[in-house]
Design a protein around this nucleic acid. Structure first.
Length: 416
RNA sequence: GGAGGGGUGGCCGAGCGGUCAAUGGCAGCAGACUGUAAAUCUGCCCUCUCCGGAGUUCGAAGGUUCGAAUCCUUCCCCCUCCA
């Protein structure tokens, strides 16, 4: 099948969201039948925010809604207590219920930016609702009998652990059973027909679809997204400073903008398709840019991606901060800022301490190396002396001073 | 319960009585070159330092020794096989 009839599949394929589909022709027919369908993706509540690694999934749900269907966000309030072994060598730490509840709140806030919830709109659910009250014996009899351990042992998530001689607890081994059960439960409760997820979820998704057929004669479909890496092989959503978080408390809109602005040339088109709503025709035009002009495409990518995640105003401001900082060599209040008491500054603060306090270095040793490597700048002048004490004289007329580490990491210091 | 193997810096992985803050690879940081890109080259990559050094590391706790990541004891954890 080359050209799907349904808008969702056509767009999803053209934009690079699709890796595998269980029964493409039948799914296409279902999506194109004129009635909005419900599709879900599950998110485990392991942190109080999601990071860019989940963005493909989020954008896929967004696309699903844009093409006239109803996305359902499943919070893994129940499954998080188990821990998905997929793609991991060791078991996760077990989280407390309070942690999980708080994490769900944080994650839910992110989805409010990307999806429109409401009657006839996007849905959300929490699998704790049905998993918490499951009784062991009935579960084994109703669900367990449909699972073959032989088959489970061939699942990638299990197999790799075994092959690498890494432990896999019985707890984790049950994760796929519960995820499969979720699919069936959601089909019954919300009429969900399709589960989507990362390619590492393929096994779990297929098992869920099968379980639905065996338990209730349901026709369920699965779709996975490709595993995203940068052109040079790095993991998406990771930088030196850690994950690229989607909430502004963990990563400012400016830093988020910068993450996308620094995309490698080879990734720009691919990312525009995945992480913005720009029509494919427009992206095709941007794709023709070459050489230094690619920077224009990167600015659009950064702006659009930031707009989706943090809103138009924040995106405009981040773009402006970036422009002032990088293109005019000035400083701008949009940069990360640290406040320093006046008395301390009057007495003089060692440059090394200041770099650490501005989060440009994690220890004084690291700060010292930075200075010795000529990577530290104070008000755009290279710091030559690592014993330098910074005083009020370094403040510019607007009452701030600018610290730079390397070419891209900037921070402002102000009195406070 | 029995037998054997193993736990080393963010990860992988050497070392198996001194010359070990610990080879190497990956990841990361900075500099040069550039386009806030990639590739390449160079330096760095436990903490503190009055740059002479100092202090903490090799699952945990004891011990042997002038001296231990390296040997011994106990404990914890993991893997494999047997029951």
């Amino acid at each position: 099948m080359t050209e799907p009839k349904s808008e969702f599949l056509r767009e999803a394929k053209a934009r690079g969201f699709v890796h595998q589909i269980t029964d493409e022709a039948a799914l296409d027919a279902r999506l194109g039948c004129g009635t909005p369908q419900v599709a879900y993706i599950g998110f485990d509540a392991t942190a109080d925010s999601l990071h860019a690694g989940s963005l493909v999934q989020i954008m896929l749900l967004r696309l699903f809604q844009r093409t006239g269907h109803r996305p359902l966000v499943l919070m893994g309030g129940g499954t998080t207590k188990i821990g998905d072994p997929s793609g991991k060598d060791t078991a996760r730490k077990l989280l407390t219920e309070a942690d999980i509840a708080a994490n769900i709140v944080g994650i839910r806030r992110i989805f409010d930016k990307f999806l429109v919830f409401g009657p006839a709109q996007a849905l959300s659910a929490d699998n704790a609702e049905w998993l918490d009250t499951l009784a062991y014996i009935p579960l084994l009899r109703d669900v367990g009998r449909h699972f073959s351990v032989n088959r489970m042992l061939t699942m990638d998530s299990v197999k790799t652990r075994l092959e690498r001689d890494q432990p896999l607890s019985f707890l984790e081994f049950n994760y796929m059973v519960l995820q499969s059960y979720d699919f069936v439960e959601l089909a019954k409760r919300y009429g969900v027909a399709l589960q989507m997820g990362g390619s590492d979820q393929w096994g779990n998704i297929v098992m869920g679809a099968e379980l639905g057929r065996r338990m209730a004669g349901l026709d369920l479909f699965g779709l996975t997204t490709p595993l995203l890496t940068t052109a040079s092989g790095g993991k998406m959503g990771k930088t030196a400073d850690g994950a690229v978080w989607l909430n502004k408390e963990r990563l400012s809109p400016f830093q988020y903008y910068q993450y996308w602005r620094n995309t490698e040339d080879a990734d720009v088109t691919r990312f525009l398709k995945l992480f913005t709503d720009l029509p494919l025709g427009e992206i095709a035009k941007l794709e023709k840019l070459a050489g230094a002009e690619i920077n224009e495409a990167k600015k659009i990518l950064a702006f659009e991606a930031t707009k989706l995640c943090h809103g138009g105003d924040a995106a405009t401001q981040a773009a402006e901060t970036a422009r002032q900082t990088f293109e005019q060599g000035g400083s701008s209040e949009g940069l990360p800022t640290v406040a320093v008491p006046q008395a301390e500054l009057a007495a003089g603060i060692p440059i090394l301490d200041l770099l650490v306090r501005a989060n440009l270095a994690t220890s004084k040793s690291e700060a010292r190396r930075l200075v010795q490597g000529k990577g530290a700048k104070l008000n755009d002048a290279i710091v030559e002396d690592d014993t330098l004490r910074v005083t009020e004289t370094a403040l510019s007329q607007d009452g701030t001073l600018k610290l730079t580490a390397g070419k891209k990491r900037h921070a402002l210091v102000k009195l406070g």
